[in-house]
Design a protein around this nucleic acid. Structure first.
Lengths: 153, 153
DNA sequence: GGTTATTGAGACTCCTTTGTCTTAAAATAA
DNA sequence: TTATTTTAAGACAAAGGAGTCTCAATAACC
């Protein structure tokens, strides 16, 4: 698996937040319901994003979480790094410690190229970009139903 | 993690086999020693490769395992598919079931491109290609030491 | 102040991956 | 036939990821 489940849930939740009014705090319960993710599990994941400064939270009635920056300034990479760390982008494909230009494995060069493609994609894709695409084409963020169901009440 | 540990070990062992005389059976114990992999664990992994027809095995004295085909005809993809399955190349980056052209998620198009780069790399890189590179530049397949230590007795 | 809605923190369970160990089966050689 | 060397198979243990649950802390509203 490329990304951990925590990371995937974190991405889906971040996209959800980016699809809303920016200043608005959204309760985690709302997100866990709409996105079909376990509430407690999602809470733990979003706590990581809050700790990393990607989200900010507010307790009590009308509380919830929100992005600290506009979604257009948040590349997917930020969320991936916050949850899964840099492993994916630094690790040797053959699992050898310290594999790099100085001391490479036979697969290093080819893998470095591929890895850069992944990095580029994650760095150059922003939350807002995906939200706009999702809204325009009514794409899904859940098992069933399009983007529009995220806005039902 | 892109590839499971089992898969990485399977790749290293397959490269080791491809670096030897093709008809020769190599004891798993020899490989586990040289590659610094647990013998019993490696045995289980190579059993999978044997079951998939990538290796063939022979019991008893002078027994061991060997590639069924020349390493030049074995792309890395064969080993990855045998051990990790096709998950990596088919799964949705946002974890949605059945994500595809018909029913995509917002990330589908971009991820499909990146995924194709991984696929290309795995399909077009053969064991022999990496072995030749490893031998020519004395690259490593273990934590320490170059390709040459695989041929010490 | 008391009640309610919310996040925060941590203990706990469950499942998968990773790794170890034991025994059986097969092949060879003496 | 018996001992030795090897893979095959499966039980078992350890570690980490995934998911659940409970209780505390904070903020709003009555």
């Amino acid at each position: 698996m490329l990304l951990s489940k925590s990371c995937v849930y974190g991405l889906r939740a971040s996209l959800f937040l980016a699809s809303r009014e920016q200043g608005e705090f959204i309760p985690i319960r709302t997100m866990s319901d709409k996105l079909e993710i376990s509430f407690h599990f999602l809470t733990k994941i979003l706590q990581q994003l809050t700790a990393e400064g990607i989200l900010e939270s507010f307790k009590g009635p009308n509380g919830g979480v929100r992005l600290t920056k506009p979604g257009s300034e948040v590349p997917l990479m930020d969320i991936v790094l916050a949850i899964d760390g840099s492993q994916l982008l630094t690790e040797c494909a053959l699992g050898l410690p310290g594999c790099g230009i100085k001391n490479p494995c036979p697969l290093h060069d080819k893998w470095a190229e591929t890895r850069d493609a992944i990095r580029e994609m994650l760095e150059h894709t922003t939350l807002t970009e995906l939200v706009n695409k999702g809204k325009a084409e009514n794409l899904r963020l859940t098992t069933e139903g399009g983007f529009d169901i995220l806005f039902d009440d």
